[in-house]
Nucleic acid binder design. Structure first.
Lengths: 344, 344
DNA sequence: ATGAAAGCGCTAACAG
DNA sequence: CTGTTAGCGCTTTCAT
């Protein structure tokens, strides 16, 4: 029984060159290698069906060629389109560049014990993406002590500036406001996200309210109710809003799920979403287009946020320049469907 | 500026022992090491805040201490409670045993080019879990050539016996049948999964039909319609069934999502799910309990399937005995709620 | 109970 | 253009 896996030495022997040559060739630094030699080595590689070991490859330069995605343990983070898109975006870009993706679920105690630092310290990964961060995750600050990058995906923090890539929530708020104004609405309400813990959704609200004001429409605090990003809570929030102003004509919801909740609330009161009350969502998750009526919403390209995050991460890793903060905003886009209509 | 990361040699020096000793201690093979020495080394480790490198650790014995989860590229695999639970189950168990989890999304071409084999060949991982497998994934057979295990999670194949862990779908089918019979139903229909490509859902159907037959209730082929596991398709399937037998009194759906579709279909025809027609689902995803009416369903513990898969995987890796197939069935449980009622 | 020494498979500086 | 050599940080016989 011969050796199991061929290694670089076997290839060198087979093709009659030194391992350096082989190494240079598999690393594409082959400007200097002569074509015949190259071909000979390539043949040997083929013949022995040689695959360089990632483990051994990483050792000399302490690079794992692996990135970690840290997801806080939520009810069901994985069962969420939002995280799904983000992860897919990161994955695609990483795979294209030869990077593997490690998954880490950050339980509360995991966080407390700073175990996430292990990932970096034991050379498991070259960088970490943090998804679903909230103001509660103050611990993230510690990452900055590390020589490997941390990048916050689709959120950021007021207090410390960490590398981040986010959707342009402010633009989303403005687009929603412009759209409703354009349709002639003035009695407007807003179901917000958890503004106390997530900065981006706060930006959304502020931009929305601010832009309405620019148009001369004042949105009183009482017409902004938090909906926790969930259908059920948003339904209650909408009930509340309708009670406070039975004659309101439009509601902007901080995500599509909550807009669905608003639909339910309206229907329960025999009002027609899109006719009696215009509803505008945010995110453009798949069901938005399929809902009844098809939902007007602000499209957030989460896949692109993930992909761009990964591109920035790879840049950080390659340049090793930790100075200068990554701070990217991904554009959003208003999608007009049937849940908004001109005021009658 | 001193060296960045402390390595095993630094610890040895600091505590005045050889690296062998340190190695033995961090590997818990310390039966032979004297308590004082042990303590001294532990202190040094603490002091230097030393963390063994995973990369270096894996090299000598070609073990990455990492497992891969291979997910076929679906519409949105990640946005699915099903995959979410499975992944969480695997993750928890792996983390507890010091294994990391790599995520791989298997695009069609990725599969064609056998790139998944790379994972094993380049020593990135010690084993692979395959989720969402269907009969289309014949390529899986190749894995058996490898010396590292592949385990199919929550499906299996008729033709080749690969290691697998699945919910007991046959038991689920029987439980559903027993329940409906117990309630006195005889005009029964079934919305099945994609029985042509997924063996487990076929088992579910067969067991359901078989058990009904044992009770003297014959379910004709025409009263079984495929629903593709989606709400919308299931709604259509249900429309169809109601047309074929307007007087049917119960429908068993191969998953909860489709049961939700059946609810919609019934309502559209002014029939009340749980009163006019009993609906029983399968899976017990979170919305099942929250649906209106709360859904009677067969609980599939996907988290447990994931966890057990991981336990079996680790066993395979440790024993290295590739003979004998893992073939585990996870028990299911009928959950009685309000969507089924005795026949009137 | 502890240590010396030989790798694991690869990269990269330095020669030639 | 190609080869020599010295590690990367750890595990693991085999001695002592």
């Amino acid at each position: 029984m011969a050796k199991q896996r061929a290694n670089i030495r076997d290839v060198a022997k087979e093709s009659g060159v030194s391992l350096t040559t082989v190494s240079l060739i598999i690393n594409k630094n082959d400007q200097r290698i002569s074509e015949p030699t190259r071909q000979r080595v390539l043949d040997a590689i083929e013949k022995l069906s040689y695959t360089p070991s990632r483990l051994a490859r990483g050792l000399p330069n302490r690079r794992a060629n692996t990135l970690a995605i840290l997801v806080p343990q939520l009810q069901n983070a994985f069962a969420d389109v939002y995280f799904g898109e983000l992860i897919s975006g990161i994955y695609e870009e990483a795979a294209a560049r030869g990077f593997r993706i490690l998954l880490e679920v950050a339980r509360r105690d995991y966080i407390k014990r700073r175990e996430y630092m292990q990932l970096l310290e034991d050379c498991s990964v070259d960088g970490i993406f943090f998804l679903g961060a909230t103001e509660e995750h103050k611990f993230l600050k510690e990452f900055d002590a590390s020589d490997r990058p941390l990048l916050v995906v689709n959120n950021h923090f007021s207090q410390w500036d960490l590398h981040h890539v986010v959707c342009d929530y402010a633009a989303a708020g403005r687009d929603a406001a412009d759209h409703l104004i354009e349709l002639g609405h003035t009695r407007i309400a807003h179901i917000s996200g958890p503004n106390d813990v997530v900065l981006t959704t706060r930006e959304l609200t502020d931009a929305f309210v601010g832009r309405l004001a620019e148009h001369g429409v004042r949105l009183s605090k009482s017409m902004i109710v938090g909906g926790e990003f969930q259908v059920e809570t948003a339904k209650l929030a909408c009930d509340e809003l309708l009670e406070r102003d039975p004659d309101l004509t439009a509601i902007f919801c901080a995500n599509d799920k909550m807009a669905l909740g608003a639909y339910q609330s309206l229907r329960a009161q025999s009002k027609q979403p899109g006719k009696d009350v215009s509803i505008i969502g945010c995110d453009d998750i798949p069901v938005a287009a399929l809902s009844d009526p098809p939902m007007t919403t602000v499209r957030m390209n989460f896949f692109e946020v993930g992909a761009e995050s990964c591109r920035q991460m790879l840049k950080l890793i390659e340049t090793k320049s930790m100075d200068g903060r990554i701070n990217k905003r991904i554009p959003v886009e208003l999608v007009r469907r049937a849940s908004t209509a001109p005021i009658r």
